[in-house]
Each structure stands twice: as C-alpha cells, then as structure tokens.
Design a protein around this nucleic acid. Structure first.
Lengths: 233, 233
DNA sequence: CGCTCCATTGACCTTCGTCAAGTTCGGTGG
DNA sequence: CCACCGAACTTGACGAAGGTCAATGGAGCG
C-alpha cells in the first residue's frame, strides 16, 4: 500500500488515531483489494486469516444454519472494520453487496500491531462497542417488532447509515437512496420472507409514506410517519 | 475496596491482566455493592455514571419499547462486565435476576484508567468481541429459529454458561441446573410468549429430553437429542 | 387451610410463511 | 428502437406457527 495519508477513509476508519509514523508502519502491512459484487471475502467457520477496513462499498455479515437458513447480522459500509481479531474461527461470512474495495491485513500481523499500539486498539474497542449496541437494537427488532415495524426501521436505518458514509456533504439522513440489498437480503436482515417484505413495501407505498421509483431505490415521503410506524424506542 | 488479589473473579474478570500495582490502583477506585434480586442497576436511556464487574450472581441486560415490549439482549454472570464505557447514554437496562454482588466504578474514572492501561482495554476488547459473537448467534436464533429450536438452544446455552461460572470444579456443561429466569423472562430472551415457552417445555419433557423437578430447575436427560433439536449451526 | 403467584393447558385468532401465479424491470439481440 | 427473455418482485389464496384470552393447576407461604 502506498500512502495511507491520502486514504479516503483516513479520518473515519480505526486508523484515524495513529500518527504519521504509525500509519506508515501499518500501511506497509496492508494491501488494497477490489472485491466484485457477490464475492465472499471470508466464510463462516473458516480460520480467520485476514481482517480489513472497508474503503468503498457495502458488504453483508451473515451467519447460516446447516439447512441453509441465513441471517444477516450486520451490514458494513465505507470506513467500517471487518473480521474477527483475536479469534481462531470466523463466526460469520462477509460478502460484498456492491463492488467494494478493502484494505486487507493478515490477522496475526494486525493482532500484534494492535497490541503494540493502544490507540488502535482503543479505536477498535469503541467501534466494537457501537457494533454491539447496534446488534442489541436489532435483537429488539427481531424479538419483538412486527413486520411493518421492521421494514420501517430498516428504511430509516439505511437512510441514516448511507447518509453517514460521506456520499453526501452534510452527513444527514437521506430522503432518497438506493438500497444495496435485494428483497431476499432485506428478508434475511429482518427475519422475514421475501413476500412479507414485498407486501410491507407495497403497503407503505400505498399509504404514501414512501415512493419506489425502481426496484432498488427508496424515497421517504413522510419521515415522521415512518418513524412512527417503526415504533422507535 | 480492600483487596483485589483475593477477589473470587480475579482470574476471570477483565482485571486479570493487570499487575499487582495496577490492580491496587484500580481497586482504590471501585467499591463492592450488593444488589437484591429484582433491583435495577441502571436504566436504559440514563446517563452512564457507572460500570461494573459482576462478582456474584446473574443479571439481565434488556431493552424495551415505549409500549412496554421488552427484549432481553444479554444475560451476565459472575466475572462478566456490565455498563457502556465511552458512551453517554446507556442503551440498555441491567437488572439482577438473583441476588448479586458487583464491583462498581464511576464510568469516567474507569474510562480514563482504561485509556492509561492498554492491558485492561485489551481485555475489555476481547470480552466485547465475544459478547458481539454471542449477540450475532442470538440474532440468528431470533431471526430464523422455530420456538422448539429456540428453547432447546437456550437450555444448552444456560447449561454451558452456568457451568463456566465456576460453580463447579470441572467447568463443563451442567446436566442439572437452576434457571435464573422465570418463564416470562425466558420468553423475553427468546422472542416468544410465556405460553409458547411453557408449551415447548412440556413437549420436551413429554419427549423425555429433559426433566423438570420444579419450576426453576432443569435436568437434561438426552443432551445429544437436545443439540439436535436446537439446530445448532 | 386457603391465598397468591406462577405455570400450564385449552380454544380460538392473527400474523406471517408457503405455494403458485402473474407482473415489471432491465438487459440483450434483432 | 423495439421485441423478447429472464430474474427479481408483486400479489393472491391458503395454511401453520405462534400469539391472545381465559380457565385450571399447583407449589410456597402466611
């Protein structure tokens, strides 16, 4: 890798706490890699040989059962971190939902670098803690919310997180955005079937809460109403 | 707090990486506190003023919606850590399921101590990462598993985690144990109603997989079968 | 002995999943 | 530019799993 200081996620990724010297050191260990949409970066159950920062693109983190049932347990965006540091087996798979670019490190290299650079571990800790908060929020959704509430929650969440990833200037929630997930994947995030998701989309559209110009893009027409429907805590 | 070196969770809590000097320093900041069963340690949405190690007892970590629906997002045992370091608001409530004893720190004190002691942050990071793994596993359960599978999974999980907390010598999974949760709470962990949980218990009992000597205690008669039913990944 | 609190069980109903057509969109080739 | 093709999505009819409501059971305690 040549120059971390020019990296577009420089200020948002976990590397952001490092000084120029450390950044250079870490940079030597990493390599950029492009991942095509649909490609899996690593598989559930495999040995964790690498971890990575997401430079560009959207990926899903998923777990599945022996009979094929799959749950998406996370969606990661530009500047997010993927992989399981300090672990032997990967508990999940990571797959690109869009074409993506990663900054990849061998896990063992990363682990020992992290141990020698508390600032990096600190950033990773903070990130893991927010990730855990998000997981908890999602457990509430999966355990207690109705189909309508789940879909509304997802739309709001995507609106916010796509807004955060710096595609826009203002960093605010987007009113119109393109979903990086197809209907099946939305079902797999929400613990619903594709048909139920579709019906809820249709209903929200019929109620004038959202507009669906095409399969993938969503326009929020009435955010307050959507928040209401999502039964936000 | 007088003497951390004598603490019963000394070797399992996040303090375990600290040397005697550091341990003494940290010990001066903490205080032990007994919590009665049913008492809430801190509330969802409140400012996080404290964090704590669990010395003894079992507590639930829960999130709830404005209309009262509640999801238990975690169960913590002896030597586990509770509270949200580096955060403003607590995203969840923590309530004692049994009488408990905590080792409490002011969050700001803990935060700055942690930042000055990378070994502590490292332990906390590892713990947070396994906590996240567990949350992911539970998302799979909540999103994709049937009622029977959920109950079977919970029983196995409790069997293992109660076994780990050092109540026994061998640290293995227990075949007979007392549930720290009542039926309503089991429902709140599994995303089911109390009636469905009860029906599944009765069914497992009728099938000879488990035995229920009284409301709270469970005896696993056929672990292999239970594992099968749980649809473990 | 009887009261209270859980837990269990039963009957019924709602929500969501399943199965099976359609329909739309986007891409490809004529 | 238009026709066609396939994949993804939508819609409908039906059924099953689990929720709801209500009655019953049973253990612990005064």
């Amino acid at each position: 890798m040549k120059d971390c200081s020019q990296c577009i996620v420089r200020n948002r990724a976990i590397c952001s706490g490092l000084d120029i010297h450390e950044l250079d050191l870490l940079g030597r260990q990493g390599r950029k890699q492009k991942i095509a949409k649909g490609q899996t970066v690593f598989w559930e159950g495999d040995d964790v040989v690498v971890v990575a920062n997401v430079i560009e693109g959207v990926l899903k983190v998923s777990m599945s059962m022996s009979d094929g049932r799959e749950q998406i347990v996370g969606i990661v965006f530009s500047s997010d971190f993927i992989g399981r540091p300090f672990g032997q087996q990967s508990p999940y798979s990571v797959t690109a939902l869009t074409d993506a670019e990663l900054c990849i490190f061998s896990r063992s290299t990363f682990d020992s670098f992290a141990r020698q650079h508390p600032e990096l571990e600190h950033k990773l800790l903070r990130r893991t803690l927010t990730e855990l908060d998000r997981a908890h929020e999602w457990m509430l959704l999966l355990g207690k919310k109705s189909a309508t509430e789940r879909v509304a929650t997802l739309l709001l969440e995507m609106s916010v997180r796509l807004g955060e990833t710096g595609c826009t200037v203002d960093n605010g929630a987007l009113d119109t955005f393109e979903l990086p997930l197809d209907r099946q994947q939305i079902g797999d995030v929400l613990g619903l079937t594709i048909e139920t998701v579709s019906r809820q989309f249709s209903k929200l559209k019929a109620d004038g809460v959202i507009h669906l110009p095409d399969r993938r893009t969503v326009s929020i027409l009435n955010r307050a109403r959507l928040q209401d429907i999502s039964a936000a805590a």
